[in-house]
Each structure stands twice: as structure tokens, then as C-alpha cells.
């Protein structure tokens, strides 16, 4: 496995932490590029998936900073085309998940990823209090976060007319459990951060 010496602050490298936390070894990647060839968004990414794997293998602090600041990790759609075809069975979607939460935690998010993250956060906010996703609430929350107030305006009345938009959320009985699940999982999340 990777060494720790490259990092001046004594942190474990990303590759080591990926191995420890999600049990995936980036060193299995032999850079064939099949993931980048099949990824529906590799053209839009700053680093296509195979390049990101190579960067993880390098284990230098500078490159790792670039990984966490990349747009790639937020563009990944988790469509799992890469893992379905990877000859070395490197679970890139799982690694992407790890890198996203790491990037958020270290506050190194790519500026363009703001909208995507706002969407995810609005989504989670919506279920945190009610237990289920409330689409109108999600969109409202998203617009509030991003100020994209005018976007998607034309489609909303159409949806409403077709009975697809529910104005009021449904609260499940176990909503307090859901809140506790959020509290516990985010405590863990922050706990891991504090350990470092």
C-alpha cells in the first residue's frame, strides 16, 4: 500500500484512506482508459476517470489537492458504466463517493459544482424533516440556495396542470427516526473529520 511520507502534515494519503474506508485499491488500476472511453461525461470532466485514478496513485499533496478540487467528482453521475466494464474491477463510483464527501468536508469544492451540491443538499433537507422527498420543496430549496429563480419556470405550470406537483409534503410517522438517522450519520461524518 501507499506510504505516508509524501505528506508533510502527516496525513494519510487519499489512496490509503480509500483503501481503509471503502476497501478499494487504486493501485489495481493499470491505466487502460476503458472507464474514460465509456464514461458519458468524460469529455466534460477536467480529469477523465482513468486520469483521476492515476492522480490518486501519485500520492503527492499537490495532486491530491487537485483531485479534491476537481469538477470530475461532481460530474460523475454514478451510472456505473465504468465499473461494469473495468477489467480490474476498480469500483470508481465508490471512490467518487468518498472523494465527494472528502472534498465537501475539507471545503475544497470546485466553484462550478455549487449548483450540483445545492441540489443534493436541498434534496437531503427535504427528506430530513418529512422522511420523504417533496419535489416542490426540493425545487424551492434549490432555488433559494442557488438564486436560479427563473430557471425551469416554463415547465412548472405544465407539471402542475398534469397533477405532478404536490404543494404540501407528506410527513411519515417515523420522521423523528429519520431525523435521528441524519444526526447520527452526520455526527459520524464529523467525528471522522475530528479524529484527524
Amino acid at each position: 500500500m501507499a506510504g505516508e511520507s509524501n505528506h508533510h502534515n502527516g496525513d494519510k494519503t487519499l489512496s490509503v484512506r480509500i483503501y481503509e474506508q471503502v476497501n478499494e485499491s487504486v493501485f489495481r488500476c493499470y491505466q487502460c482508459g476503458k472507464c474514460s472511453a465509456g464514461c458519458p461525461l468524460s469529455e466534460d470532466m477536467d480529469y477523465p476517470p482513468s486520469q483521476l485514478m492515476r492522480m490518486l496513485q501519485l500520492e503527492t499533496p499537490e495532486v491530491e489537492a487537485n483531485i479534491l478540487r476537481s469538477y470530475t467528482i461532481w460530474l460523475c453521475l454514478t451510472c456505473e458504466t465504468c465499473i461494469a466494464r473495468c477489467p480490474q474491477e476498480v469500483d470508481i463510483p465508490k471512490i467518487m463517493d468518498f472523494l465527494r464527501s472528502e472534498s465537501l468536508r475539507r471545503k475544497k469544492v470546485h466553484p462550478s459544482a455549487k449548483d450540483i451540491i445545492s441540489f443534493h443538499k436541498s434534496f437531503l433537507d427535504s427528506i430530513k424533516y418529512t422522511g420523504r422527498l417533496h419535489e416542490v420543496g426540493l425545487i424551492a430549496g434549490y432555488k433559494f440556495r442557488t438564486y436560479h429563480l427563473l430557471k425551469d419556470l416554463p415547465v412548472a405550470p405544465k407539471l402542475f396542470l398534469r397533477g405532478k406537483l404536490k404543494l404540501f409534503p407528506h410527513f411519515i410517522k417515523g420522521k423523528s427516526v429519520i431525523s435521528r438517522i441524519f444526526t447520527k450519520t452526520f455526527r459520524e461524518y464529523k467525528g471522522k473529520e475530528a479524529e484527524k
Binding site: 491505466q31 487502460c32 482508459g33 476503458k34 474514460s36 472511453a37 465509456g38 464514461c39 468524460s42 469529455e43 480529469y47 477523465p48 476517470p49 482513468s50 486520469q51
Partner: peptide, 12 residues
């Protein structure tokens, strides 16, 4: 649909 890893890993 392939990729060229010597050209920034871009799809070909």
C-alpha cells in the same frame, strides 16, 4: 468508442 490515455484520457 475508446480512449487515448496519451491525449488527456479523452474519448476517441
Amino acid at each position: 468508442k475508446g480512449a487515448d490515455t496519451l491525449m488527456g484520457h479523452k474519448p476517441v
